[in-house]
Amino acid sequence: MENLVILKKEDLNDFVMQIARTKKVVAPVRKGVKSFAFEEVTSGARIDLDYTSTILPPKKYFLPQKETIIEYDKRKKEWTPTLYSEEIVLFGVHTCDLFGIQCLDIIFSENPKDFNYILRKNRILIIGLECSNYCDENASCALMDNQNPNGGYDLFFTEIDDRFIIHVNTYHGEKLINKTGLCTKADKRDVSELRLLKERKRNVFKNEVDIPYAELKPLFVNAMKSKVWDEIGEKCVSCGNCTNVCPTCYCFDIIDDINLDLNTGTRTRVWDSCQNGSFAEVAGGENFREDRGERQRHRLNRKFNYPVSKFRRYFCTGCGRCTRACVAGIDLKETINALIEEKKGNENG
């Protein structure tokens, strides 16, 4: 109970304004008619607490779309590993996205450690936001068991009536709370209301697909030669939207940019997608994943199969972004259901 504090909803604006005075605050805001994005805010006014998962996940702050990793000077024949970073307070992160950030942390903390990622991440303070309901029908957070947080935040906001109940998870989070001077201690009533909400959520979030969590990996392991991949391959246009919007996709390309002086420049790391036709092509011309169906199979195996052997966790957060972003209508839940159906068909003869 000591680590719970209360912020009145009417004070959210002051809370954000106070932080924004010294730090960059990013939060979910409306983008277009029915979409949302994390963008810089200076007050609470633009923040939309009732948002559907943003177009791009917060990974864009941890692994920027285009990031300098080296600065070079041809004349001096020097390459200098370089990091550009800034202090950010990331506000309003859904539990699925908290999990996505945790997945990225694992990948970039493996040896050899990626200090560009680690040092940048250390300057980002994460404030989570509880979901009391589904974003929309595309989410599968209950299947992935991500409707409740599993750490990965400094502060966690739960909205109840006229206030936020805030779980203070780290010393950094505590300092931020103290600095604003707007929060009060939670009492017994708050704690019991928080418990009630968690119970209510159990009836709201139910596994969206007819397969238990533990069965997902075997489903994909045994589906390497499935016809489902051919069917999806026929639909796919290889735009890479599904991977760009995925909170746990981190594939990248390394590209040299040169300045107009033709001597100095930067080596950058830019987001890439395994859905690009040339992603697995070698210089000699051989393409090891030429078929769109193979590429889609690879994408989903990187969520439901490969990372489970390596890190004992799925790399799908259940956020539903890949389904929302697919202009051709490839739907994750439909795909999993199709694999289940095929498996049943095979078992019955």
């Binding site: 008619v33 979409s35 943003t54 791009l56 246009v237 290889s238 890479g240």
Partner: peptide
């Protein structure tokens, strides 16, 4: 050899087909 959609999504534009 990518479509405009790739860059459009990276710019977080709302998909025009959805509108």
């Amino acid at each position: 050899e990518k479509s405009v959609c790739t860059e459009c999504k990276l710019n977080e534009n709302e998909c025009l087909f959805d509108r």
